[in-house]
Design a protein around this nucleic acid. Structure first.
Length: 230
DNA sequence: AAATAGTCCAACCGCTTCAAT
DNA sequence: AATTGAAGCGGTTGGACTATT
């Protein structure tokens, strides 16, 4: 429908930006289907909305992401996946487009270089270990009463806490470890996420409870339902 | 200085969700 | 309950800019 009217595409001019700003300031955000007409712009509603949301909106933070922002982004991405708008919602001044672009450039590249390193190491190992010597993991089922679950490996009041992994958060740039592959995560498989200190877990508790989780809300379940119970 | 490759980011496209009827 | 249109979202692309040869 919008394409039929021959609307303008491509980069926005200063003049168009001014018109859009003036329109939103006068009528407020929303009713995007009315904006092109109100502002006198030959643009589709989507284009207007996107331009406002990603560029013109006040309080938009430009420039490089800070270390704390990257930390938060990685944590949230691990939790939420590619739900950029949700992630951006918790990074003040950042747009979903910013977050997405950042992730697709810096983080992916980091992951790639990381897997390359891993592959090199893997090849080194393969040349040293013959195929018939490979010890394959054997799946095991643990009962809930198993000492592995009841003892020091699981703190039933705070799932995710592992004494063994308690130091992994203390170091600077701890988040880099999150980019390790599943192999490394599996090593800490007695934890739900990764080794954390008590204080850091409080952070998680706050974060998790404040994040909208539709699947939890719909099912009438809670984060605590994921805890192991006797 | 010119050509090429690589990077970054704004914008588009198509799909899903939501609300009104 | 079904339909329709607006809003919102994530994936992808194109082009401007920068670095390298």
């Amino acid at each position: 429908m919008e394409a039929l009217s021959g609307v303008r595409k491509g980069a926005w001019s200063k003049c168009e930006d001014d018109l859009l700003k003036a329109c939103v300031q006068r009528y407020g955000e929303g009713k995007w289907h009315l904006v092109p007409q109100r502002a006198g712009l030959n643009r589709c509603r989507k284009s207007c909305r996107l331009r406002w949301m990603n560029y013109l909106k006040p309080n938009i933070k430009r420039g490089n992401f800070g270390e704390d922002e990257v930390d938060m982004m990685i944590r949230l991405h691990k939790l939420l996946g590619n739900r950029w708008s949700l992630i951006a919602g918790r990074l003040p001044g950042r747009t979903s487009n910013d977050v997405k672009n950042y992730w697709n450039t810096y983080i992916r590249r980091k992951e790639l270089s990381h897997t390359k390193e891993k592959n090199v190491k893997q090849k080194e190992v393969e040349t040293k270990v013959k195929s018939h010597e490979v010890i394959r993991p054997v799946p095991q089922t643990l009962s809930k009463t198993s000492p592995w679950l009841r003892g020091k490996f699981i703190n039933s009041s705070k799932v995710g806490v592992s004494e063994a992994g308690a130091d992994s958060l203390g170091s600077e740039n701890w988040w880099k470890t999150l980019l390790d592959d599943k192999e490394d995560n599996a090593r800490n498989s007695n934890t739900c996420f990764f080794g954390v200190e008590d204080g850091a877990l409080d952070f998680w508790t706050q974060e998790l409870t404040s994040i909208d989780c539709d699947f939890l809300a719909e099912g009438g379940i809670n984060w605590s339902d994921f805890l192991l119970r006797d």
